[in-house]
């Protein structure tokens, strides 16, 4: 009798492995394989002193005081073009977005904004990519959610769209006291 029970051990092990692999599969679906979790979540936004596209200097102090998105973009980045209309929609809903112009030239950036529309509250010019390095940026677009104290609360690698906003960013944005224009839905 005991021996018969033992016969089920391989089956149980197989079942355990199946569950494990199935969970791993689900993980891949929700989190794309190329996306790394930021080491900077819940850490303060790094200090910086960089010019905007109007050449006025900006520092970290300009970021704090409001729950915002910091969008890392470049005129060389095709996906940034794809996400731009949705970012524009977000500003219409009352979200403040600061543009971090990453590894770009001011001329190309200004030209890009003239074509696609300047939706940003202000710009930070990171030509060398040094601030990007402090932020753990490894591509564009990347979008950071920062709270009123200037602490990074969420990071999105890749395009921000309606689904990402609704599922990932909006709950956090509201939880940290971010404001939206009245009725978002019809």
């Amino acid at each position: 009798m005991k021996k018969q029970i033992l016969l089920f051990v391989p089956l149980l092990m197989f079942a355990a492995l199946s569950v494990f692999f199935f969970e791993a599969l689900k993980l891949r679906e929700t989190r794309s394989n190329s996306e790394l979790t930021s080491a900077l979540i819940d850490r303060p936004f790094p200090e910086f002193a960089l010019p905007g596209l109007d050449n006025r200097m900006h520092t970290r102090d300009d970021l704090v005081g409001e729950v915002r998105l910091v969008n890392v973009w470049g005129s060389w980045c095709p996906s940034c073009r794809d996400e731009h209309p949705f970012l524009e929609e977000l500003t219409r809903r009352g979200v403040s977005i600061v543009g971090l112009n990453y590894k770009d030239t001011p001329d190309a950036a200004i030209q890009w904004l003239q074509v696609f529309g300047d939706i940003y509250d202000f710009h930070i010019q990171d030509q060398s990519g040094r601030l990007g390095l402090d932020l753990g940026v490894y591509g564009a677009p990347e979008t950071f959610l920062i709270d009123r104290m200037g602490v990074i609360r969420y990071k999105r690698v890749g395009v921000v769209n309606e689904a990402i906003w609704e599922e990932q960013i909006k709950p956090r944005y509201l939880a940290f006291g971010g404001l939206l224009n009245t009725p978002e839905a019809p």
Binding site: A39, L133, L135
Partner: peptide, 8 residues
């Protein structure tokens, strides 16, 4: 580098 990019 780990502080910025994680142990990855």
């Amino acid at each position: 580098l780990v502080a910025r990019y994680g142990t990855f």
